[in-house]
């Protein structure tokens, strides 16, 4: 268990210094290789926890609303890796979104908001 070193997840590269970090939930709330949803100041954030990536363990934070169905279900999709990118498959119509930049792989018009997220000890933190 070497999570003392916090790992930065999201590749929203334009924001040079994400933060300030806010606590969202605890590590215990996460499900390995799958998703849960947290309430974040009026927004619904889907959190995906991957314990073993090339960069060690990672948490991704992405908008929970599926633009195609209008339902808040992204957190209940299947996580996968397609062409060297971590993605989430939306559970109703199966379209894929990049967990790194929120882009829809099938439709360049569709985007989901992504947040930077990290594990800090037993806490899950997010940067607005």
């Amino acid at each position: 268990m070497s999570q003392a070193n916090a790992v930065r997840m999201s590749s929203a590269q334009l924001a040079p210094q994400p933060g300030p970090w806010q606590v969202l939930c605890s590590r215990d709330d996460l499900v390995a290789n799958s998703g849960v949803v947290a309430w974040f100041d009026g927004a619904q954030v889907a959190l995906f926890y991957l314990p073993e990536t090339e960069q060690g363990e990672q948490v991704f934070a992405i908008e929970n609303r599926d633009p195609k169905s209008g339902a808040n279900v992204i957190g209940r999709g299947i996580v996968g890796r397609i062409k060297d990118e971590y993605v989430i498959a939306a559970p109703l119509y199966k379209q894929h979104f990049s967990l790194e930049d929120g882009r829809c792989l099938e439709d360049s018009e569709q985007y989901l908001r992504v947040w930077s997220a990290r594990l800090n000890g037993d806490l899950v933190e997010i940067a607005a």
């Binding site: 290789n33 799958s34 169905s69 339902a71 996580v79 559970p91 109703l92």
Partner: peptide, 22 residues
């Protein structure tokens, strides 16, 4: 089982059938 959960489609994960509004 924890090792099997991430494999399932959403309906199997939650052992119910998701409808259009989630």
């Amino acid at each position: 089982d924890p090792a099997l959960v991430p494999l399932q489609d959403t309906n199997d994960t939650f052992m119910a059938n998701m409808q259009k509004n989630g």
